[in-house]
Amino acid sequence: MELLDFARGPALQFGLYAFVIGTVWRLLGILLLAAKPDHSAPRKRGGILAALKVISSRSVTAREFRQDTLYASVLGYVLHIGLFVIVFLFVPHILFFKGLIGLEWPGLPNNVIYFVGVITAGVGVALLLRRMTHPVLKLISNFDDYFSWVVTMAPIITGLIIPIRFGIRYETLLAIHILSIAVLLTWLPFGKLAHAFLVFFSRGTTGMVLERRGAKT
């Protein structure tokens, strides 16, 4: 079996199944947990609107911390928006999703994607350097942080190399790119990258709890 056949066959299949199993497992494992007993009378109802409010309000850094966290916040946004553009607006990726879920949407020209890819990769490196040099971040970082960075950046870097080639055959680079995605999918639900789907649940839960207690959100 050729490397490309292995990558887009069994390897991607394994990665996708691991991603689906892991995501459903983590979500249900958390959502089905027993709620902590709350013995005080609620100040407010703390429903879904409270959850949505905090999901929205915490997407922007509080004014008090804005100056101190500006660098990380801006780069964090650029990284995430870049990832979204690369993953969901590159035409070959859209065709991959179409084969998977049957839905298709308009994409961007390749050159725009390559530009965004370079910016995203650069921002990723900048954030890694900050993590490695900032005294507090460095202290609290563990294997999960660094490995998650590697598996996130690997598909971007390998994807950017495909049009350049460096003398390597297209199908070999494509296979390596797909293999890196298979690794990312396998790791995503089990490490800190799980924030991709847990972030809204955790923020929403925080919002509901805080509103019940009458805190400002």
């Binding site: 996708l16 199944y17 689906v20 199993i21 892991g22 995501t23 459903v24 497992w25 983590r26 979500l27 249900l28 494992g29 958390i30 959502l31 089905l32 947990l33």
Partner: peptide
């Protein structure tokens, strides 16, 4: 895969 994930998640909870 979804069913397997749901079963493991429910068991863990």
């Amino acid at each position: 895969a979804v069913a397997a994930g749901a079963a493991i998640g429910a068991a863990a909870a």
